[in-house]
Design a protein around this nucleic acid. Sequence first.
DNA 1: CGAGAATATGAAGAGGATACTCACATTCAT
DNA 2: ATGAATGTGAGTATCCTCTTCATATTCTCG
Lengths: 207, 207
Amino acid sequence: MSTRIAKPAARMRKQPRQARSIATVEAIIEAGAHVLSELGWAGFSTNKVAEAAGVSIGSLYQYFPDKLALVEAIRRRHFDHVLSVIREASAEEKPLRQFARELVRGMIGAHSIHPTLHQVLLDEAPGDRGSRAAHASFQARYLEHYAAAVAQYRKRRKDTETMARVLSSAVEGVIHNAARRNMLDAPELQKQLVELISAYLSGSRAT
Amino acid sequence: MSTRIAKPAARMRKQPRQARSIATVEAIIEAGAHVLSELGWAGFSTNKVAEAAGVSIGSLYQYFPDKLALVEAIRRRHFDHVLSVIREASAEEKPLRQFARELVRGMIGAHSIHPTLHQVLLDEAPGDRGSRAAHASFQARYLEHYAAAVAQYRKRRKDTETMARVLSSAVEGVIHNAARRNMLDAPELQKQLVELISAYLSGSRAT
DNA sequence: CGAGAATATGAAGAGGATACTCACATTCAT
DNA sequence: ATGAATGTGAGTATCCTCTTCATATTCTCG
């Protein structure tokens, strides 16, 4: 599959043409991310999003045909962001420790605005429709980058994929947990996370 | 491996006296855990729980005064279980690798019935009332056990608490993620998780 | 057995959210 | 100035929710 997909924004009822409406749509997506992260899927209602965006509920439905279309837009934006972070961290060849540091810094940055958005998007948000495909595709590319990094620092070719999965979910777990405690920018935590990644990838065979 | 601990009477409207009602209460809690894990907090309704338990909604309210009382009961049971797993794994002194193996085995066991219950309980379920205290107390004891293990295998006394936090959330992240993919009993995954724990705790200072 | 206690039932009340529409008002581009 | 783009928000219809209560069934124990 080609990695270059057309970018005609998610299913929209109407394309915003003037600057005013572009700002409105942006505000809605941003507010949506905020509500989703703060209240979870259970508290995610179109009325609440509109209010949080400082916009009438009518305006929301002017551009998003559906509650799900809105979630898709939010998801798309967030996933694009995360993906670019990983891509950057694992771009060129660099020492293991530097890779770990950049990865941690990037991931923390990507989560510090809407701390639990990522998990909510993965765990609670639906499902149906063609978003399942996009979702899977994101997961695949996400893991690919991790796998590439694993392959680079680890000689054994065997469990690369499993290692990528373990590594990514461990990192996500730590960040998610830290986010819930407002500890995302504690320096010791960042340091220890770097340590965890480095230790795992340098693969000391200890007793 | 059922935990046979005396019940210090969770918030109940009526104590079940006959075997029949004890079974009913048990079925309700079990079904509640199932619904919570499967549908999340958003889909957790008393009617659904009663139906899943094969019991009338009236029976549910015979014993639980409240939706929240039910959640509390579920939470209590699950946390007790998890706590006993960690306690067992970090009980006596044993080689690092064995500790890691037992921990992983236990945690996976604790999650294989209701895969995402743990996360739902931590992330989505409320909060107010006196359950906040129990919640915090659980977290504290939970971390204590991890910290004890960290202290045992790591010489440095400095970042013990942070390390415990990182370790626990990493393990939880991996298990949670695996659960969502029905990969909880993939042997390579278990192996790699053991590897991750061992590597982190043996603390190789790699480049 | 049979009386009273424990247990189980589920239709119904009362209420609150929810997603979404539509007729209309406002602001823009040209 | 005119039509298109944009914004509004009260209102609708629907669906669920939690919880109660009067009644029915089953148990315990003398």
